[in-house]
Simulated assay, not measured.
Amino acid sequence: MVFAPDTEVALRTVVNLINSAANGEEKLATVADLDRFLEAEGFSGSRTRDAAELASVHALRAELAGLWTADEDTAVEGVNRLLREARALPQLLKHDEWDWHLHATTRDAPLADRMGTEAAMALVDVIRSKEMDRMLVCAADDCDAVVLDLSRNRSKRYCDTGNCANRAHVAAYRARRAAGE
């Protein structure tokens, strides 16, 4: 394990959120799409379930996508801004199936603030651990999805949104065969 379990969960949620708009495909087009996303990610707390909430999550997604590929100083500025704007106050909580873990907003804070704060807290761990090189963009030429490499040998290069790794391996195999003929 590279990070604490709650950090890894938050980072995977960031990946899934950013990738919900990867390759020109909008997977959070409606409030119902957002409902399904939050259910799948196990995100709890208050909701307004309206267009404004969806728009705020879209804005957060764009901001997190920018932070994913940012240099360390820019990432620090963005993380600090997210925490400051949400008036983050870190505290240990235990709820649902989770043992003690860190939250920095209340359950009734606006959804985008809660999501942004969780993402920012996870990115704090990544930045402090000097592990930003684990935050990648898919190596496939035709994919712009992001990748979180939690492998021991830092070998993950392709996203989980499609068949990018399989397509790259097949293309490499065909190229080797063509070169050998």
Rank of each mutant, 00 (worst) to 15 (best):
F3L: 12
F3H: 13
A4G: 00
P5H: 03
P5N: 00
T7K: 03
L11I: 11
R12E: 13
R12F: 01
T13H: 07
V14L: 03
S20W: 08
G24E: 12
E25H: 09
E26L: 04
K27M: 09
K27L: 07
A29E: 15
A29M: 07
A32S: 14
A32P: 03
L34I: 06
L34R: 10
D35S: 00
F37K: 10
F37T: 08
F37E: 06
E39G: 10
E41A: 14
G42F: 09
F43M: 14
F43L: 15
S44Q: 09
G45M: 08
R47V: 05
T48P: 01
R49M: 09
D50K: 04
A51I: 10
A51P: 02
A52G: 05
A52K: 06
A52S: 09
A55Y: 00
A55I: 00
A55N: 03
S56P: 05
V57E: 05
V57C: 04
L60R: 01
L60D: 02
L60T: 00
L60C: 05
R61P: 12
A62V: 13
A62R: 14
E63A: 15
A65D: 13
G66F: 10
W68L: 06
T69E: 09
A70M: 02
D71R: 11
D71W: 03
D71G: 11
D71V: 10
E72A: 15
D73P: 01
D73H: 03
D73N: 06
T74L: 06
T74C: 02
T74E: 12
V76M: 05
E77H: 12
R81H: 14
L82A: 11
R84V: 11
R84E: 13
E85I: 07
A86T: 15
R87W: 02
A88M: 09
A88Q: 08
A88R: 07
L89D: 12
L93E: 11
K94V: 15
K94N: 15
H95D: 15
D99A: 15
W100K: 07
H101L: 13
H103S: 14
P110F: 03
A112V: 08
A112F: 02
D113I: 04
D113A: 13
D113K: 05
R114Q: 06
M115Y: 00
G116I: 07
G116T: 06
A120D: 02
A120E: 02
A120F: 10
L123A: 04
V126H: 00
I127T: 01
R128E: 06
R128F: 02
R128G: 01
K130M: 05
K130R: 12
E131Y: 01
M132L: 02
D133K: 11
R134P: 03
M135K: 13
M135Y: 05
L136G: 02
L136E: 04
A139R: 00
D142R: 08
C143R: 09
D144W: 01
D144S: 11
D144L: 07
A145T: 08
V146N: 02
L148V: 11
L148A: 06
D149M: 03
D149A: 01
D149V: 12
R152Y: 04
N153C: 05
R154I: 15
S155K: 10
R157V: 03
R157S: 04
Y158G: 09
Y158E: 04
C159N: 07
C159T: 10
D160N: 14
D160S: 14
D160F: 00
G162Q: 08
C164E: 05
A165I: 03
N166H: 14
V170E: 05
A172W: 09
R177N: 11
R177W: 06
A178E: 15
A179K: 12
G180M: 06
